[in-house]
């Protein structure tokens, strides 16, 4: 997560592997509405849900809802719970921490998280 500067030229990028330089460009920063998510398709077929909060911070987690099975987390509503950013699945409303991927309603469940930046 990186603080994004408000410039139209900025691109949203995901880190695919551990390597420093393997940043995958997803879209223009302007495509991300504060408080809403978008889904991105990775070259290997994985799906990522990307979010931007009102302060401009970016988050990326796996798009698939582990409870329902559908790839819909990017369409959930975001919020803040006890200082932690989260998204609530649009299927059955379970909430997932956007920074750790841990489900706030069932902490044995977690989804993958990704490094994301605007540059």
């Amino acid at each position: 997560m990186t603080l994004a500067l408000e410039t139209t030229d900025l691109k949203v990028q995901l880190q695919l592997n551990d390597g420093e330089d393997s940043w995958f460009t997803v879209c223009d920063l302007s495509a991300l509405l504060p408080g809403r998510g978008v889904a991105a398709l990775l070259p290997d077929g994985r799906q990522v849900a990307l979010f931007r909060d009102r302060s401009g911070k970016l988050y990326a987690i796996d798009n698939r809802d582990p409870f329902g099975g559908a790839a819909v987390l990017s369409r959930g509503l975001t919020g803040t719970h006890q200082g932690r950013p989260f998204v609530a699945s649009p299927l059955l409303k379970q909430r997932f921490d956007l920074e750790t991927g841990v489900c706030l309603d069932d902490d044995v469940v977690r989804v993958a998280t990704y490094e994301v930046r605007a540059s």
């Binding site: 698939r64 582990p66 409870f67 329902g68 099975g69 559908a70 299927l91 059955l92 409303k93 379970q94 309603d105 069932d106 469940v109």
Partner: peptide
């Protein structure tokens, strides 16, 4: 349906 990884546990009727 894709294979479910976890059982169904609805939190709130929808």
């Amino acid at each position: 349906l894709p294979l479910l990884t976890i059982g169904h546990r609805p939190l709130e009727g929808s």
